[in-house]
Design a binder for these strands. Structure first.
Ligand SMILES: Nc1ccn([C@H]2C[C@H](O)[C@@H](COP(=O)(O)OP(=O)(O)OP(=O)(O)O)O2)c(=O)n1
Ligand SMILES: [Mg+2]
Length: 996
DNA sequence: ATCCTCCCCTAC
DNA sequence: TAAGGTAGGGGAGGAT
């Protein structure tokens, strides 16, 4: 699929302003740093780039963004924020966010009962478990690979010096065929192997330092530690909780009958330097000194919040300490105190709830919107209201704001500012003027004047990108300039939605309603810090943890999803291996791929399988990975869930414990509950039905998913399958596969799909990437490019192997899957030409390079899905007994895959497995070995397309483990392991065979 | 015309 | 050293 693409990245470069850095369009954090280093703080423009934009003024240092036209990498930069303004505007965005209004009248008193900190609640519990087993490998081992992508950034910030990397021109990267995968190979012509090998070596060497390694995702407790310390994670979690709470509150209220009012009075309430103000409560003596909240004293540690004294030095939120220290050497750093922030927030919201506003909407932990219209407008006002009447209304609104500020100050000891306006947009703009510790009311007649000279960047939703585009394409700098443009012009340049919005905003028009209800459309887990790997085993382990985390979050939201998207961030070609920010992602290229699941689920095992499937479509060197995002969409609520298959659940659970890391993933969660609506409605009924007729087969041991599938199929087919299952259970060690038709035919494919479920998706087309100028667009996803000449080694298929896929693997796929992949490839990239090597990453390259056939890498690499790994180097290994800690140990066998792969005949495999079983009989299976065995079975289905063979092995293994005499405890472990294998294989079979 | 995927952008 | 998360709006361009 897709290859890498460029991006300028998502991260934004934000901040320009005051800070020096920033760049115009894209740049990387690194670049920014460099500029800083060179220039010092101020701005200057960079040579090449020219970022015209407004920003320029401020900052600018620009960076050269992409030099190449296409690029992908992003920039990243550091702190973003545009000018300081963020404070002021902001709002808007709320529209959706929010929560709804509520009447204050009847609040549940336990409103806050569940208000838990994310750190405490969410992760701590969950995460830890997952992690437990991770087996990380201790030392580096990988070897050679090369390639060069680089990280980028993601969302946020970072700066740095990019410089060095630059030296090597990006260009080649794209062209370079990197072939290969895993192993290295890169024959990169121009660059020379050594170049990439050196990069790889540097990465491995760096990771070998225990002080570095322990902070990365290789540490079993990484997720827990990271989320506990991530301010952004806390912010997001808090916001989601507040939204849920307010929505519940609102929906429980029956009233909401607001009389239609001719005018609205909206208050935007926001704490002044929230984190800093709250942390200062415990250090009052520092109140008048410049203070910032950050994890570190300098370097690339980010400032979450700084007080106004610090801002007078041009220090701002999101800025890196290094820069802040340059601007303000005496800056005092205080630590985070998330609990205290929650406490202050509770008091804040309690005050707001007490206002009894018509509607209320939480914007964030420290910010909210209130619609107090009916509190200001007298019921008996006759409409064309007189000036004096209106004046009284204004005063009422002002007095409410004052009362709120006084009360919050009294309860929290902190200052909040209030912006008042006739709509959300104006209230937000007013807030900025209110800001340090004040309130400001922009009356209707003052709107035009207030907007005229306002910088467009101070409008909500207008960030660096839009600002740049407006300036470069329309020469618009202020809202007044914006207002001079026709709607047609704005729509043409910015897109239909954005154009119209800008047209309205420039006139102070905004119809958004406070507290509009909204339904969550996605649940995701993103990590772009601390991501460093040496080999694929580690990547798999981490993706499993991510899958489990996503599953946990879905479950917590009582949601199941049908569409999964994996976003991978890799080091940009010109980015340094050692990022400017300690373990940051640096400048990166991003690639994303989505697939639809056959049925909505929150099952970690299913999520993991799809995730790894998507990951494998791109050949990326583990050492180049810098970040991941796993997102579930097409959500529905689920209602029942477990009870239906209790026994199965229990089994899995206990099993999970034991084997831990191994597949545990899925294990513990039960199955996918059913979706309330999305999936068929009849399922439930059917399911229940099923139970009764399970005579011969012990369904309790069957994967619930499997049961679900059975329920959905025609009864005859179902009976047939059940019969087979029963047969399997009986059979004993038969080695051969059980022949049986591929079980269910029903489920649709697993790969990408197109289905429409979507209700959720947003509307659709939107704007375009605004921003900067010429979009450098790369062809829209180009999934795979094709590879031309590879003749299929194994097969005779004439179908071309799309780029991005290992030919060997591709050709070994089942026909239908292959077809789907080709279709997808054609659709997306249309690749049918020959093309050069694959490799994914080259996104950028893509443009230039790609097309002609270059080629280098003709032959098929072969590594195929199975990564290299030592072939069975250790046959003996399998038997291994537990080595100690899985976690740092190299997973014992690890990859039997290859080993197995070479064993063409089942007899050999059975022999090996049996050998392992006998050797480890009394101690039980080592989780890694079990994991490897299951993985092999899954590959038989996925790669070989031989479900029967896999099922045959499963049946044989169950028989083997259940009949031989072993110590009770070990016996149980073996048996559970066998059941897990059955569960996993059944699921895979369902997905790959059933699907189309 | 509408949907879909893959991004990008913004905000706290 | 540092803890660079996340949800939703929206645009381009291809598929239907
Ligand atoms: N880049 C950022 C921006 C904000 N925050 C956190 C810390 C802030 O205290 C809190 C609220 O954000 P605001 O934008 O409201 O900023 P402040 O409250 O700090 O300052 P003010 O509102 O006075 O501008 O969110 C953060 O961690 N990182
Ligand atoms: Mg604030």
């Amino acid at each position: 699929m897709p290859i890498a693409q460029p991006s300028w990245d998502r991260r934004s470069v934000k901040d320009p302003l005051e800070t020096p850095a920033r760049s115009g369009s894209s740049n990387s954090y690194d670049e920014l740093l460099e500029e800083l280093d060179n220039e010092g703080v101020p701005f200057s423009s960079s040579p090449e780039n020219q970022i015209p934009s407004s920003i320029a003024k401020q900052s600018s240092r620009s960076s050269t963004p992409n030099r190449t036209p296409n690029r992908n990498s992003a920039i990243t930069e550091q702190s973003p924020r545009k000018s300081r303004p963020e404070d002021e505007f902001n709002a808007e965005g709320l529209s959706q966010l929010s929560q709804r209004s509520l009447n204050l009248g009847d609040l549940p008193k336990d409103f806050w009962d569940d208000y838990n900190s994310p750190a405490e609640q969410d992760h701590p519990q969950t995460t830890p478990k997952l992690v437990a087993a991770a087996h990380l490998q201790p030392a580096p081992k990988t070897s050679l690979k090369r390639r060069t992508p680089e990280p980028a950034s993601s969302p946020v910030r970072p700066p740095n010096k990019r410089k060095r990397t630059e030296s090597s021109p990006v260009v080649d990267r794209s062209e370079v065929p990197d072939s290969e995968d895993d192993e290295g190979f890169d024959q990169a012509p121009e660059l020379g192997l050594s170049s990439s090998q050196k990069v790889e070596q540097e990465a491995l060497r760096y990771l070998a330092d225990p002080n570095v390694r322990n902070q990365t995702c290789l540490n079993p407790n990484f997720l827990t530690n990271f989320f506990q310390n991530s301010r952004l994670h806390h912010l997001s979690t808090w916001k989601a909780e507040l939204k849920n709470r307010f929505q519940e509150m609102a929906s429980s209220q029956t009233k909401r009958t607001n009389r239609r009012l001719p005018r609205r009075y909206i208050l935007h309430v926001d704490f002044d330097s929230f984190f800093a103000a709250v942390s200062l409560l415990k250090r009052p003596e520092l109140k008048d000194k410049p203070v910032a909240i950050s994890h570190g004293q300098d370097g690339a540690s980010e400032i979450a919040s700084c007080n106004y004294k610090a801002r007078s030095f041009k220090v701002h939120n999101g800025m890196w300490m290094r820069e802040a220290k340059m601007l303000c050497p005496e800056l005092v750093v205080l630590p985070y105190d998330f609990e205290a922030y929650e406490e202050a927030s509770k008091k804040f919201y309690n005050v707001l709830i007490g206002v009894k506003a018509d509607r209320i909407q939480s914007v964030s932990i420290d910010e909210a919107l209130l619609d107090v219209s009916s509190l200001c407008i007298s019921p008996d006002t006759r409409e064309p209201a007189s000036d004096s009447t209106i004046e009284r209304e204004f005063e009422k609104a002002d007095s409410i704001a004052t009362a709120i500020r006084d009360r919050i100050r009294e309860l929290t000891g902190c200052e909040v500012s209030v912006g008042i306006g006739g709509n959300i947009l104006i209230a937000r703009i007013a807030l900025r003027r209110a800001k340090p510790s004040g309130q400001y009311h922009i009356r209707p007649i003052e709107v035009a004047g207030a907007l005229e000279n306002l910088k467009v960047v101070d409008l909500p939703t207008v960030g660096r990108a839009l600002t740049t585009k407006l300036l470069s394409d329309l020469n618009v700098e202020t809202v007044g300039d914006l207002r001079s443009k026709s709607k047609e012009t704005l729509v043409r340049v910015l897109g239909p939605k954005t154009g119209e919005k800008m047209y309205e905003y420039s006139r102070g028009i905004n119809r958004e309603v406070v507290g509009e209800l909204s339904v969550r459309q996605s649940v995701s887990v993103n990590i772009n810090w601390g991501i460093r790997f040496e080999n694929m085993d580690q990547v798999e382990t981490f993706l499993r943890q991510l899958s489990e985390e996503l599953s946990r979050r879905l479950e917590k939201q009582k949601k199941v999803g049908k569409a999964l998207t994996l976003t991978i961030m890799t080091r940009a070609a010109d980015a340094p291996v050692i990022t400017p920010k300690f373990l940051g992602c640096g400048k990166c290229d991003t690639i994303s791929k989505s697939v639809s699941l056959d049925s909505a689920t929150f099952n970690a095992g299913k999520i993991y399988d799809k995730t790894i499937f998507m990951f494998r479509q791109n050949r990326i060197r583990p050492t180049e990975l810098r970040g991941f995002a796993l997102q579930m969409t097409a959500l529905s609520e689920y209602t029942k869930g477990f009870k239906e298959v209790p026994s199965a659940q229990q089994q899995t659970l206990s099993f999970a414990k034991k084997t831990s890391s191994s597949s545990g993933a899925g294990s513990n969660r039960t199955e996918p509950p059913k979706v309330t609506k999305a999936t068929s409605s009849s399922q439930e009924a059917q399911q229940k039905k099923l139970q009764p007729n399970i005579p011969p087969v012990d369904l309790s041991q069957v994967d619930p998913t499997f049961l679900e599938e059975l329920n959905n199929m025609p009864s005859e087919l179902r009976d047939e399958i059940l019969a087979d299952l029963a047969q399997q259970q009986q059979q004993q060690r038969q080695q051969g596969p059980i022949s049986q038709p591929p079980p269910f035919a029903k489920s649709p494919s697993s790969t990408p799909s197109k289905r429409k479920t979507a209700q959720h998706l947003k509307s659709n087309p939107g704007m375009s990437r605004p921003i900067s100028s010429p979009p450098l667009r790369r062809p829209p996803s180009q999934p795979f490019k094709t590879e031309s000449n590879l003749t299929s080694p194994t097969d005779n298929e004439h179908e071309e192997c799309p780029e991005g896929y290992d030919p060997e693997v591709f050709y070994s796929l089942p026909e239908d899957l292959k077809k789907e992949i080709l279709e997808d490839a054609r659709r997306q990239g249309k690749l049918k030409k020959k093309a050069s090597t694959s490799t994914l990453s080259n996104n950028n390259a893509s443009r230039a390079s790609n097309k002609p056939g270059s080629s280098s890498k003709p032959a098929a690499p072969i590594a195929s899905i199975f990564q290299k790994r030592a072939p069975h180097s250790a046959p003996a290994k399998i038997p291994t007994v537990s080595n100690t800690h899985p976690a740092y140990a190299p997973a014992s066998i690890s990859h039997p895959r290859v080993a197995f792969q070479n064993l063409v005949n089942m007899g050999e495999i059975e022999l090996r497995i049996k050998q392992w079983f006998m050797d480890a009989l009394v101690v039980g299976p080592h989780e890694d070995d079990l994991k490897a065995w299951i993985e092999y079975l899954k590959q038989v289905v996925i790669v070989e397309g031989d479900s029967e063979k896999a099922l045959g092995f499963v049946a044989w293994f169950i028989e083997l483990t259940s009949t031989v005499n072993a110590p009770p405890e070990a016996h149980e472990d073996w048996y559970k392991g066998a059941l897990e294998a059955r569960e996993e294989v059944a699921r895979i079979v369902e997905e790959y065979d059933g699907a189309r």
